[in-house]
Computed example of a mutant assay.
Amino acid sequence: MDPALSFYQSLSSVSFTLLGLWFTVLGLSHGGWRRDPALHRSTLHVALHFFLPGVMGLGLGAVLAAGSSVAWRVTFGVLGLVGLVESLLFLRHRGAPVARTVRSLRTLDPLLYAAIVAAVFVPGPVGGAAPLQIEGTATGLLFVVGLCYLWFAFSQRAAPTPVPDGAPPVV
Rank of each mutant, 00 (worst) to 15 (best):
A4P: 02
A4I: 13
S6C: 09
Y8R: 14
L11E: 12
S12A: 14
S13P: 12
L18C: 12
L18D: 09
L19F: 14
G20L: 15
F23M: 13
G27I: 08
L28Y: 12
S29G: 12
R34I: 04
R34P: 06
A38S: 06
A38D: 15
L39N: 10
R41V: 05
R41C: 06
L44R: 12
V46W: 00
V46M: 00
F50P: 02
F50I: 12
F50A: 02
L52H: 03
L52I: 14
G54E: 09
G54I: 05
G54H: 11
G54A: 06
V55T: 09
M56D: 11
G57V: 03
G57Y: 06
L58P: 13
L58W: 09
L60A: 10
L64P: 06
A65S: 15
A65V: 14
A66R: 14
S68N: 14
A71M: 11
R73C: 04
R73T: 02
T75C: 11
L81M: 06
V82S: 03
G83A: 03
V85T: 08
L89T: 04
L89R: 01
F90T: 02
H93T: 13
R94N: 10
A96G: 04
V98H: 05
T101K: 00
T101G: 11
R103P: 01
T107R: 11
L111N: 07
L112W: 02
Y113M: 01
A115D: 07
A115C: 08
I116N: 00
V120F: 05
V120M: 13
V120G: 02
F121N: 03
V122D: 03
P125W: 11
V126G: 13
G127V: 00
A129E: 13
A130Y: 08
P131R: 13
L132I: 15
I134R: 14
I134D: 02
E135C: 06
T137D: 05
A138H: 10
G140L: 04
G140P: 00
F143C: 05
C148S: 14
W151M: 14
F152E: 11
A153E: 08
F154W: 13
S155T: 09
Q156E: 14
R157C: 07
R157E: 14
P160F: 11
P162N: 13
